[in-house]
Nucleic acid binder design. Structure first.
Length: 924
RNA sequence: GCGCAUGUGGCGUAAUUGGUAGCCGCGCCAGACUUAGGAUCUGGUGUCGUAAGACGUGGGGGUUCGAGUCCCUCCAUGCGCACCA
């Protein structure tokens, strides 16, 4: 009766399934714990061994909490809308709904083999109408809301309309366009359409024209976080700026809330840092400079944004973005030709080129700005390094204090004014805030930090500017010109977006066979006239982006079958925040920010009772692939072993890791691998063909993908689970190496042999009373596993298991009172074998319903310790001394010791340092 | 360039607070049992040295009775941001 993991695992997976062992109820009488994995996008390639790392960690944690008496919610689902399924449909003619369903089946079967404790009755799929009905519903809540800056809260739009009736918008600046100002009388006089257009500028979910990231190859708009270095995150296609009518989420209004909320959650520093950077809050001032140009016949002011108003006397030039509104008006006739040429040059360059080569370019407009404090005339330049979309699209150039400004001044021979004295060396700009100002008029001799405030007050007093906070974050583009996403619950009537009522939801995504884009940059739905045209208007033909469904899925798990609400308040009050969220860092600024914003909006509107969704976030590391390489001598079909490759000119070829044992290539398998290699010949070293290796992403194209199914088949799910944990800290990136798995597998066999005599094929459980050493080994293990699991140190917990089982094996312990605690302790890590052992011991029911064993402290108390005795910090001896010994007792014992005396060579120690339970150090 | 991590045996790693560096596992070496071993078990395994011992946590410096752990500095790797005024 050996450890036959295959039949054991099948048996218990069937049992759990049949008994609904993992179904959890909203049982408010028990303390809850909510453990969530970032749900996967069901891609066509299925899972590789890297994907389950976080799932295993969360599964262990869930099971652990369950054993500790918590009612644990641990659900799983699929983020099943998205671009790849649509691309796949276009390329292979398989409808997204069909390929997605097939992919989900693959995922499910892979997940099931690993023995996760998901409550599948709560599964959600974002592409399911019963789910996206509520995504559309939340969209409507956001559409019907505005963000009140005074209360810093999302509020119903109806309240804003009432305010407009009474007092216009004087106390609520328009977030869409701050130049929109109107009185109550104006408001009352506006037409329906005019009112709707203004309200649109306030809505949290709004439609507007804006520069968007347009990806021609994908035929759609992308959010900022979906664009990496000027190309699309998916597919790496070029992305250009384009002005289009788009839906947006007014996430910028939530910037401060999102920043503050970070203080209340337990995310890693780097995660918080990434979000903080993305939000990019900076505070400074906007300052108006009067312009002087022969082209201007009236007073025109150039508004710049600066974080350093204290350096205003150091301004030697102004720079505006090429797209700046004043460029045309202020350019003087004699500079016109040069400016036109420069603008043409800028237009010819893609976003990518602009970012890739950081050349210093620019052109003088011929206009001057007047420094309001000393009347200096400052030349106004145009340069592409100033971005139209940030601040005011215009900056004041202070070369002595800003590196880019300094390079610009040098490049165009603009004289540099030094306002920071010795802090500026004439070579490099110095962005210090510590200097005392010089050459700075009324600020002379003032520390910069102080001047900052003084200047802001002064310009506000003079009415030429004001304090201003800016964010790098832009409003999030919320529409996609795609098919495979949630349709908007919006019908356009006479240019007004009319929301559907809740009764009309869901707006079903119609079936389409041909997913070609529609006319004028519209999505495929635009081609479906019979769907698009409704009484009195046309449906919105864009669909929502991938992050729509994932922004609230954690709420749906709490109340998945609810047909009347997205989630009942009762359910969300009980389950509350996600206590532990495990997922990758790639969602740092996308999904996490959006779901945090949605949570805040729903909270403000009273739909849920908490305003941060995730109490604690743990980022699992990525498991990389360990690729294997072979070397073909150029122009031949001869392959040379890695150690000899330098003697030839070779080309490196990735080889399937599954036909390599360690580094040794299975040459026969290699010949059969691809027809190209059937005639391969080999130059061996020591009779073997050795491959090279490289750590890189686990990916099909490197042939280094390891499928968890294969590992589970060979070693079992319990081994696989423990091995993934044993690999190292969960948060760390690491390469996959199948070899080490043997050790964990041996460990489980060793556990098995504590219970079962494999030769005789029977249980060897004895009823005798355990010795103290046996209890001690057991309880030490239990305590360590408990502590380590609680602090997500799963690798050391596995190690603690090994130590404990090694000790019990060495003690030949087969005693029932010890053994009956083992399955419980093991249940979170190796749930299948734990169930089997539990049953072998004759226990009733499932080990899942057992309770974590209490540690009996009496077996862990020590009375003495073998102290290391160091002399001048070097360990020289070891003496067993009672733990309650006093300093005097210790000194006399130690000084009386022969070995110590030998090392002291007759000298008397100046000092005896005795740290209880740690060590003893003699200073000579 | 800026920010955040991380550097420990041949390899993955351990050392919750400054207190015996190298736990656990892989690999390797030797042995046992075997017709056989890619099974199992036992012992060994940081480096140098026959030994006593010395050295040893990326390099250099410092604080301390004592540093992998704290401080300074440099180097390397990974990740994030990157004309954000």
């Amino acid at each position: 009766m050996e450890y036959s993991f295959r039949s054991i695992e099948q048996k218990w997976q069937a049992y759990w399934n049949a008994n609904g062992s993992y179904n959890v109820s909203n049982d408010a009488s028990r303390p809850k714990f909510y453990v969530l994995d970032m749900f996967p996008y069901p891609s066509g390639s299925g899972l590789h061994v890297g994907h389950p790392l976080g799932y295993i960690a969360s599964d262990i944690f869930s099971r652990h909490k369950r054993l500790k008496g918590f009612n644990v919610l641990h659900p799983m689902g699929y983020d099943s809308f998205g671009l790849p399924a649509e691309q796949y449909a276009i390329e292979h003619g398989i409808p997204p709904a069909v390929s997605t369903a097939a992919n989900i089946r693959t995922f499910r079967s892979q997940l099931d083999k690993i023995g996760f404790c998901y409550d599948w009755e709560r599964e959600v799929q974002t592409s399911d109408p019963s789910y996206y009905k509520w995504t559309q519903w939340i969209f409507l809540q956001l559409f019907h809301s505005w963000f009140n800056r005074q209360t810093q809260k999302t509020e119903p739009l109806a309240a804003l309309e009432a305010i407009f009736e009474k007092e216009g918008n004087q106390s609520h600046e328009c977030p869409g366009d701050r130049h929109i100002r109107f009185s109550a009388a104006h408001w009352q006089a506006f037409s329906h359409k005019e009112k709707q257009d203004i309200l649109m500028q306030y809505r949290v979910a709004y439609c507007g024209y804006g520069e968007v990231n347009w990806c021609e190859a994908l035929g759609t708009v992308l959010a900022n976080d979906e664009v990496i270095n000027g190309v699309s995150e998916r597919g790496g296609h070029p992305v250009v700026r384009k002005k289009l009518r788009q839906w947006y989420l007014r996430i910028t209004e939530y910037a401060d809330r999102l920043l503050k909320g970070l203080e209340t959650v337990d995310f890693s520093d780097s995660m918080k840092e990434m979000q903080t950077n993305w939000i990019g809050k900076s505070s400074g001032a906007e300052i108006d400079f009067k312009l002087r140009s022969v082209s201007l016949d009236r007073d025109v002011f150039l508004k710049v944004y600066t974080t350093r108003p204290d350096t205003i006397f150091g301004v030697d030039f102004m720079v505006v973005a090429p797209e700046h509104a004043l460029v045309e008006a202020m350019t003087t006739p004699d500079q016109q030709k040069e400016v036109d040429e420069y603008l043409a040059y800028v237009n010819s360059r893609s976003e990518r080129e602009r970012m890739a080569e950081k050349k210093i370019t620019g052109v003088f407009t011929g206009a001057y700005a007047i420094n309001p404090f000393d009347g200096r005339e400052i030349p106004v330049w145009i340069s592409e390094y100033v971005l139209a979309g940030y601040g005011t699209g215009a900056i004041m150039g202070v070369p002595c204090g800003d590196e880019r400004d300094h390079r610009f001044a040098l490049n165009f021979s603009i004289p540099v004014t030094n306002i920071i004295g010795g802090y500026y060396n004439g070579q490099d700009a110095n962005p210090t805030k510590d200097a005392m100002l010089e050459n700075s008029g009324f600020l002379n001799g003032m520390p910069m930090r102080e001047a900052l405030e003084v200047v802001i007050s002064k310009i506000e007093e003079m009415g030429i500017g004001q304090r201003r906070v800016n964010y790098k974050m832009r409003d999030a583009a919320f529409s996609r010109q795609r098919y495979w996403g949630e349709p908007f619950p919006i019908v356009w009537k006479d240019g007004v977006a009319v929301p559907l009522s809740e009764e009309e939801l869901p707006v079903l995504l119609p079936h389409m066979d041909d997913l070609r884009p529609g006319p004028e940059g519209e999505g495929p739905l635009a081609n479906l006239e019979e769907w698009k045209n409704v009484a009195g208007g046309t449906r919105e033909v864009n669909t929502m982006p991938g992050y729509a469904g994932s922004s609230w899925y954690f709420l749906r798990y709490m109340d998945p079958g609810n047909e009347k609400e997205f989630c009942s308040r009762e359910a969300s009050d009980y389950w509350n925040q996600v206590d532990l969220y495990i997922g990758g860092t790639e969602h740092a600024v996308g999904h996490l920010l959006y779901s945090r914003m949605w949570t805040k909006a729903l909270y403000d509107l009273g739909k849920i009772g908490f305003d941060e969704p995730f109490r604690r976030l743990v980022n699992q590391g990525k498991i990389g692939g360990d690729s294997r390489l072979v070397y073909r001598i150029r122009g031949t079909r001869t392959f040379v072993s890695a150690g000899l490759k330098d003697q030839h000119q070779t080309d490196e070829i990735h080889v399937d890791v599954n036909i390599v044992n360690g580094f040794e290539l299975d040459t026969d398998a290699f010949k059969k691998w691809k027809p190209d290699f059937a005639e391969a010949e080999f130059i061996l070293e020591n009779g073997k063909y050795l491959c090279g290796s490289r750590l890189e992403k686990m990916s099909k194209r490197y042939f280094n993908v390891v499928n968890p199914d294969d590992i589970v088949e060979k070693y079992g799910a319990d081994t696989f689970r423990m091995y993934e944990m044993f690999l190292g800290p969960v948060e760390q990136d690491k390469p996959w190496d199948t070899k080490g798995i043997e050790g964990v597998h041996r460990f489980l066999k060793k556990v098995w042999r504590l219970f079962v005599d494999e030769e005789k094929g029977k249980l060897i459980v004895q009823d005798a009373q355990p010795e103290r050493a046996e209890w001690k080994a057991l309880y030490r293990m239990i305590r360590k596993v408990d502590e380590d699991t609680e602090r997500f140190s799963f690798n050391t917990a596995v190690s603690a298991f090994m130590i404990g089982i090694n000790e019990l094996s060495d003690l030949k312990c087969h005693k029932r009172s010890i053994l009956e605690k083992l399955p419980v302790v093991l249940a979170a890590y190796a749930p299948h074998v734990a169930e089997e052992l539990w049953q072998l011991l004759g226990m009733q029911g499932s080990v899942l319903d057992a309770r974590w064993p209490a540690v009996e402290e009496q077996y862990l108390v020590e009375t003495a310790k073998a102290y290391p005795i160091a002399i001048n910090g070097k360990t020289r001896a070891e003496i067993e001394i009672a733990l309650d010994a006093t300093q005097e007792q210790v000194e006399s014992i130690v000084l009386g010791d022969a070995a110590v005396q030998k090392w002291l060579e007759g000298k008397t120690p100046k000092k005896v340092i005795y740290v209880k339970n740690k060590m003893i150090n003699l200073v000579v």
